[in-house]
């Protein structure tokens, strides 16, 4: 099998905030009925996480689960495990109306961290990022300037961003421009 590499080989930029492409991430799109006990058990078995509440992400040691829409979750697992986890989901959910697809290679992952991280995201997404309005564990699908993206904030105040791999370079340039050292607005400081 060929050696998989991420879109930007871990490119990083340090400015108002630190922008980093975080390499390959395992990602599985899972659709189904959130209220089904079988569905909930399959999610738990795949990631160690419960089905998240509306617009939240649940994070455990083995993986994480994000709320994408009323019938869609994004499962985050180790890249090397994604194919096997997808297969076991299909087994666990056999007979139940669902869809599980390994989308890892269709995606790129970034982090934005540091004191001005909120401001950097707020410059490019139509989302209220005031500290009380967007908190650790919150998950949001939106657009970052001209491209679709999803992001969440972890307990260490690091923003994690997921977008399509085809727009990884755009995303990196966008975030780096927003984090340019001379581009401070100071709206949340």
């Amino acid at each position: 099998m060929s050696e998989a590499v991420s879109a930007l080989n871990g490119a990083s930029f340090a400015g108002l905030a630190r922008v980093e492409e975080t390499g390959l991430g395992g990602m599985i799109t899972l659709r189904g009925d959130f209220t089904s006990a079988g569905f909930q058990a399959a999610v738990k078995a795949a990631t160690g996480c419960a089905v998240p509440e509306l617009r939240k992400i649940t994070i455990a040691d083995r993986g994480a689960v994000a709320w994408m829409s009323p019938d869609e979750l994004l499962l985050l697992v180790d890249y090397a495990e994604a194919e096997a986890v997808t297969a076991s989901l299909a087994e666990d959910l056999a007979g139940e109306h669902h869809m599980a697809v390994n989308v890892s290679d269709a995606r790129a992952c970034f982090t934005v961290s540091g004191a001005a991280a909120r401001e950097v995201i707020a410059k490019v997404a139509p989302v209220d990022l005031a500290p009380g309005q967007f908190a650790p564990g919150d998950f949001r699908r939106t657009r970052f300037a001209q491209v679709a993206a999803a992001f969440w904030l972890d307990e260490a105040d690091v923003f994690h961003i997921v977008c399509f791999r085809s727009v990884a370079a755009y995303m990196f340039n966008l975030l780096s421009t927003a984090a340019h050292p001379q581009a401070q607005v100071g709206v949340y400081s």
Binding site: L54, R55, S69, P70, P126, R140, R141, R143
Partner: peptide, 12 residues
């Protein structure tokens, strides 16, 4: 009404 987000026009 599905995700509860107060979305501005450019997200719609």
């Amino acid at each position: 009404p599905y995700c509860g987000v107060t979305a501005e026009e450019t997200e719609l």
